[in-house]
Nucleic acid binder design. Structure first.
Lengths: 67, 67
DNA sequence: CCATTATGTAAAGTTTACTTTCCATGATTC
DNA sequence: GAATCATGGAAAGTAAACTTTACATAATGG
């Protein structure tokens, strides 16, 4: 799964830490998502979608058979 | 988080086991989602959405501060 | 230069999603 | 009323998401 988090965050002009605080997760979690180290839980995906005013599908790009 | 899995599955006239096979998860996983014992991973949510031809948001109902 | 700021990443631990195995129950159906 | 079928759910284990701590580095500002 790919995602547009870094792009969307930078468009908002905020730091990883600010986004992390808004989502109530650690800065490392945001960094890990931006750099593809793992996928978000569905709850975090919903929170991020709400924060950016978009759908989950607009932020996270599902690819067949992705890990 | 609530979801419409049982309703959607029954509308299709299929068993938990058949849905599980299509999603490549165990029957117990489908049962656990239908009965709210836990939330799906985002990958499974994407697979289910694709299977039912709907968006994740149409199947899974995000509620503020849900576990 | 030096201090600070933003980010990358790793290690070790906790929590949660998911598996396999197992048993129980209600609804057929024979 | 015994056998089968669909579901519920528990227990124990594995895998992945997430936390805290820690350190490294590049960029910037004084």
């Amino acid at each position: 799964m790919k995602n547009r988090l870094e792009e969307l965050r930078k468009a908002r002009g905020i730091k990883q830490e600010e986004l992390a605080d808004a989502m109530e997760v650690s800065r490392q979690t945001i960094g890990s998502l931006e750099n593809g180290r793992y996928n978000p839980s569905i709850l975090l995906a919903f929170k991020l979608a709400k924060y950016f005013g978009m759908s989950i599908e607009d932020i996270f790009i599902y690819e067949e058979d992705s890990e």
